[in-house]
Design a binder for these strands. Structure first.
Length: 196
DNA sequence: GGATCGATCGGCT
DNA sequence: GCCGATCGATCCG
């Protein structure tokens, strides 16, 4: 299975976000593969995007978003949850795609154990849920997802046709302005594995 | 099914 | 000190 390359992530963030739908996120844990098909993402683009963590400029926390594409930006929120982003675009410009939901493919037994026996449709139907199911935490913040020995990476899988892709405003974004309404949440329309 | 609310803590405006 | 790119429990209908 072909891995997605650095050049893939170096493209425009919205193009990458749309193309990531249908591709496979793989986590190697204790030598075994856990994976899922990406069915929901959100784009966060630049310091002008009032919903982006980089809206107040570069800090130690959001530094990975300013780094080279193809790296992970994992952050901790609400005192208990982790969320996974893939850094996109050119180095020096802060942008990333938040992975919001996955359809379980490989390693489902382990996911069920880490998710407290919830229904399979809810194993990874949310940004914090998928991090819990795949055991992704701060240890991956800044990690290179394109390295040959990466324990977290992306593989090429089935592309999603245009008529199966839907868009909506981003979830959980506060404040006002265009950041609240711009349709940068992209998802597979008929998937039962999307969030909410 | 939908609405509301508490948990819990690191980073920052 | 304040608040968040969330989740899950609980309450109501």
């Amino acid at each position: 299975m072909t891995r997605l390359s650095r050049d893939y992530f170096a493209r425009d963030t919205l193009i990458v976000a749309r193309d990531l739908l249908g591709q496979r996120l793989v986590r190697v844990l204790d030598g075994a593969r856990l994976s899922g098909r990406i069915v929901e993402v959100e784009a966060y683009v630049g310091e002008e995007d009032q919903a982006c963590h980089a809206r107040f400029g570069r800090t130690e926390r959001n530094a990975p978003m300013y780094g080279p594409p193809g790296h992970a930006y994992v952050y901790f929120v609400y005192g208990m949850h982790h969320c996974l982003n893939v850094v996109t675009g050119r180095e020096g410009y802060p942008a990333a795609v938040l992975i919001r939901a996955l359809e379980p493919l490989e390693g489902i037994e382990g996911m069920r154990a880490r998710r407290g026996g919830r229904p399979d449709a809810q194993l990874m139907s949310g940004p914090a849920r998928l991090c819990q199911a795949l055991d992704v935490g701060r240890q991956f913040d800044g990690a290179d997802l394109c390295a040959p020995d990466a324990l977290l990476f992306l593989e090429e899988d089935a592309a999603i046709p245009a008529d199966a892709v839907a868009a909506s405003p981003r979830v959980g974004v506060r404040g006002d302005g265009v950041a609240l309404t711009v349709p940068w949440r992209l998802y597979v329309r008929d998937s039962r594995y999307v969030s909410r």
